[in-house]
Write a protein that binds this DNA or RNA. Structure first.
Lengths: 140, 140
DNA sequence: AGGGTAGGTCTAATATAGAGACTTAGGCCC
DNA sequence: GGGCCTAAGTCTCTATATTAGACCTACCCT
C-alpha cells in the first residue's frame, strides 16, 4: 500500500498545482493511460503475451473486434514500440505481430491488474446487482 | 515474470478453447477491463486515491471531462462498488465521493501500471517519433 | 432584485467505432 | 481455364458515444 500511494501521489502532482493554470498540462500518466486504456490495446497485449500471432489469429482470439479497429489498434501499438510487425512474402502475404521488449515489460504490471480482476469480479457483480436492485425508488 | 505469465495464461484460457463456439464467452478479465478500461474510470480512482472529493473538485482535477461523463463515470463506479457517494444536506447540497474498500484494493495494481507509465513513457515517445519519421515512404 | 453556487439533466453537434463491400494476386478444385 | 477461396487490409456508410453548453432548483449574499 505504501508503494501504491507513492506512485499515485506522484501522479496527482501533475493534476494539481499551478500546472493547472497553464494549458494542456502534460501528464505522462494521462498520456500512457489514454494510450493503453482504450478498448482493445490491453487485450491485444495480453493475447500476444503467449506467442506471436497473425492478423487473423488475433481476430479470432478477440472475436468482437472489427477489422478496422484491429488494424488501427495494432498500428498504434506498433507506433508506440509495444509490438513489432513482420511481413512474410508469402502469397497472399502473412503478417505476424509480436510483443516488443517494451510490450513485454508491460506484462508484469498488467498481470497484477488481471489478478485483481480475477479475484474481485465476483464482488463487483454483487455490488452491481445490489445497486440495481436498490434503484427502484431512490431519486437523485 | 513468472507471476505475470501465469495470470495471463489464465486469461487466455477464456479466449481460446471451445468456449469460442458458444456465444458471448464470459471472461471476467474482459468484463473488468471493459469496466475500468474506459476513458475516465482509472483517472477517477486515482484522483480519489488521495482523499474524498466533491463533484466539482473532481471536475477541476480532471479539467477535460464533461459534466455528463463525470456524472456517468461516477455513477458506474458507484454501481460497481468501487466508490461511495455521500450527500450532505447543505444548500445547495454537496456530494462527496470516496473510494470504497473495493476501490482501495484496486490502487495497488494500478500503481504498478503508473510506475510503468512513468518509467517508460520516454521510450514510448521515442518509438512514436521514430515511427512517425519513418512513415514518409513506407507503403502498407 | 440580481448574481452566484452545487450538482446535476437535457439537447444538439461532433467524434469515434462497427458492419460489411471491395481489393490484389496467387492456390486449389474440377 | 473459370470459379471460388484466403490474408491483410482499405473504404464507405451507419450507429453509438462523447462533448459543449443551456437549463434547473433552492438558497445565500450584497
Amino acid at each position: 500500500m505504501k508503494t501504491a500511494l507513492s506512485a499515485i501521489e506522484r501522479f496527482t502532482r501533475y493534476q494539481t498545482d499551478d500546472a493547472q493554470s497553464v494549458e494542456p498540462v502534460y501528464c505522462p500518466v494521462r498520456d500512457v493511460l489514454d494510450r493503453i486504456g482504450d478498448k482493445w490495446s490491453m487485450l491485444m497485449i495480453m493475447t500476444l503475451a503467449t506467442r506471436p500471432q497473425r492478423f487473423s489469429e488475433l481476430r479470432r482470439a478477440v472475436r468482437d473486434i472489427s477489422k478496422r479497429m484491429l488494424t488501427q489498434t495494432l498500428r498504434d501499438l506498433e507506433r508506440d514500440g509495444l509490438i513489432t510487425r513482420h511481413v512474410f512474402p508469402t502469397k497472399p502475404p502473412s503478417v505476424e505481430y509480436r510483443l516488443a521488449p517494451l510490450g513485454q515489460s508491460l506484462l508484469e504490471p498488467m498481470a497484477s491488474l488481471i489478478d485483481w480482476a480475477d479475484h474481485r469480479f465476483a464482488d463487483i457483480h454483487a455490488a452491481r446487482a445490489s445497486f440495481d436492485g436498490a434503484q427502484a425508488d431512490v431519486p437523485r
